[in-house]
């Protein structure tokens, strides 16, 4: 039985809007205008226990709104959600003790106190038994390598140190379901890699179900076998990561290394030229033309090496959202 089941989920916000300027602001005092924004539009998916699923989409796609509905922070306009058998927006204490939502841009720590104080408060608020609290905390401190920063006031921590402490506090009650909204936002590449590694370890060790949103493709490609691509509140793709390019960007990238210079050979007539050097080139061709173009290249040019690749996942996403944005 799936741990998370979402059916026909929609969320419509009614947001005030007005023109810029003094006259418009005066007019809005007497007559407010509202616009309906369909942030999530009839989405459905199921997630099994222990899965890590990546939520991808541009800003305003509906990712965070969906996570907020799954965590119980938002009441949907229509549709149903079941997470571990609970309806999230009923906000039962039992449910809240089994989930965690980490919002990269919002802090759960006491800004004025050392992180350790926030951990202790969190343990008490979630009713974590002392022995389990000590065990989990020690483990998280080791895994996240934060022993050195525990006594520092949170406001004086670097962003990376603070993010690790935020992750630590989110997991102290050992949640079974984790909603991670941009967990690596703003931290450097090395730290991103460490946080990713930690999330993977936590998933393996506790069999936790994780939904992750991120702007960094590296987060998603390193952690998630399955991804859900969402744009304008609708699911564009739900499947395995390698299938994403097949479905959303049906083209291949052919890279060639040559024995001699191209000497004006017309690569552009075969496909989109992605890079061009005297003895090296990469072109993008529709998937169905890949075999024919390869054959032609091998016939026409002194090819030393040739590779046919799926396009980089970043390109796929960029093309999909670029296209979607212009529709």
């Amino acid at each position: 039985m799936p741990q998370i089941e979402v059916e026909n989920l929609s969320k419509v916000f009614r947001v005030p809007e007005r023109e810029a300027g003094f006259v418009a602001s005066l007019r809005s005092v007497f007559r407010r205008r509202y616009k309906e924004v369909r942030a999530v539009d009839g989405i459905a998916f199921k997630i099994e226990e222990g899965e890590i699923v990546g939520f991808l989409g541009p800003n305003g796609a509906g990712k965070t709104t969906t996570l907020k509905m799954l965590s119980g922070l938002l009441h949907p306009t229509s549709g149903t959600v079941s997470v571990m058998g609970h309806v999230p927006w009923r906000r039962e204490s039992d449910y809240l003790r089994r989930i965690s939502m980490l919002m990269g841009q919002r802090s759960q720590l006491h800004w004025d106190l050392p992180a350790m104080d926030s951990f202790i408060v969190h343990g008490a608020v979630f009713g974590v038994p002392k022995a389990q609290f000590d065990e989990t905390l020690n483990e998280l401190i080791e895994l996240l390598d934060i022993r050195e920063v525990l006594k520092k006031q949170v406001r004086s921590l670097s962003l990376g140190e603070r993010m690790k402490c935020e992750i630590c506090v989110s997991l102290l009650h050992r949640p079974s379901v984790l909603f991670l909204d941009e967990p690596t936002i703003g931290v450097d590449i090395a730290m991103q890699a460490r946080i990713r590694e930690f999330i993977r370890d936590y998933n393996r060790k506790y069999g936790a179900t994780i939904i992750l949103t991120s702007h960094y493709m590296a987060d998603v490609s390193a952690l998630c076998r399955r991804i859900i691509v969402i744009d304008k509140g609708r699911i564009l793709f739900d499947g395995l990561l390698p299938d994403l390019s097949q479905k959303l960007a049906p083209y291949k990238v052919i890279k060639i290394d040559l024995d001699r210079d191209l000497n004006g050979y017309d690569l552009a007539s075969l496909g989109d030229v992605l890079s061009l050097e005297p003895r090296k080139a990469a072109i993008r061709v529709p998937k169905e033309n890949a075999a024919a173009v390869t054959s032609r290249l091998l016939t026409d040019l002194p090819v030393l090496d040739l590779t046919i690749e799926d396009p980089p996942i970043e390109d796929v996403i960029q093309r999909v959202f670029g296209g979607a944005a212009t529709q």
């Binding site: 039992d94 809240l96 919002r106």
Partner: peptide, 12 residues
């Protein structure tokens, strides 16, 4: 500020 959201994710 949205700080209420973080408080609402707690079981008390």
């Amino acid at each position: 500020s949205g700080s209420m959201s973080a408080q609402l994710l707690k079981p008390v």
